[in-house]
Amino acid sequence: MEMSFRLNGKQVQAEVRPDMVLLDLVRELGCYSVKRGCETANCGLCTVWLDGKPVLSCSVLAMRAQGRHVTTLEGLQKEAEEFGMFLAAEGGEQCGFCSPGFIMNVLAMERELSDPTEEEIKEYLAGNLCRCSGYMSQLRAVRKYLEVKAQQKGGRE
């Protein structure tokens, strides 16, 4: 089936099978930050944004993107690099395999929640599994990043 959607701000057309998941489609289109980790919608590695909201692309049929906006880490390089600096400074990147999905959710959370508590941060990021870090360094990075972003927003208002 032929479909059309926006991928990282660019209109694309693709031929998809009825059973194809969004994860496979975006990887075929060159978005290799989106990874397959568990195939059970439990790890968060395949997180993309569908119309600005994080979804697990391993559990979304590709045809659901018809006429919609899909964003991967490749479409958020500036923002990802900015948060990545906080992650690296806190030692939270470890092997880096989980980082793309984790970063997608952190950036979505920063847009969606205003001044989240530590519990709200943990709840928002609960679906992102990391086998290396133990999460404390990642949590420190998220809190510092959100504090800086809040200060920057406060200075513009």
Rank of each mutant, 00 (worst) to 15 (best):
G9C: 05
G9S: 07
G9K: 03
K10D: 07
Q11M: 02
Q11A: 08
Q11H: 05
Q11C: 00
V12A: 03
A14K: 02
E15I: 04
E15T: 08
V16A: 02
V16M: 03
V16I: 15
R17V: 01
P18V: 03
P18I: 07
D19C: 01
D19R: 14
D19Q: 14
D19W: 09
M20N: 02
M20K: 10
V21N: 13
V21G: 00
L22I: 04
L22E: 01
L23D: 04
L23N: 06
D24V: 03
D24S: 14
V26C: 01
V26I: 13
R27Y: 06
E28Q: 15
L29Q: 15
G30A: 13
C31T: 02
Y32I: 12
Y32P: 01
Y32Q: 14
S33V: 03
S33R: 11
V34C: 08
K35I: 07
K35C: 12
R36T: 14
R36N: 12
R36Q: 15
G37V: 11
G37T: 11
E39T: 13
E39F: 10
E39V: 14
E39I: 03
T40W: 07
T40D: 12
T40H: 15
A41Q: 14
A41E: 13
A41T: 10
N42H: 14
C43Y: 06
C43E: 00
C43W: 14
C43F: 04
G44Y: 08
G44T: 13
L45K: 09
C46S: 12
C46N: 05
C46M: 12
C46H: 10
T47E: 02
V48A: 01
V48M: 00
V48F: 01
W49Q: 04
W49I: 00
W49N: 01
W49P: 00
L50M: 13
L50K: 06
L50G: 03
L50T: 09
D51I: 05
D51H: 04
G52V: 07
G52T: 04
K53G: 01
K53F: 00
K53Y: 00
P54N: 06
V55C: 07
V55G: 00
L56R: 12
L56S: 06
L56K: 12
L56Y: 13
S57N: 08
C58Q: 07
C58H: 11
C58I: 10
C58M: 10
C58Y: 04
C58K: 09
S59W: 04
S59T: 11
S59H: 13
S59C: 13
V60P: 00
V60I: 15
L61G: 02
L61Q: 07
A62Y: 06
A62H: 03
A62D: 11
M63A: 14
M63V: 15
A65Y: 09
A65D: 10
Q66D: 14
Q66F: 03
Q66N: 12
G67D: 08
G67H: 13
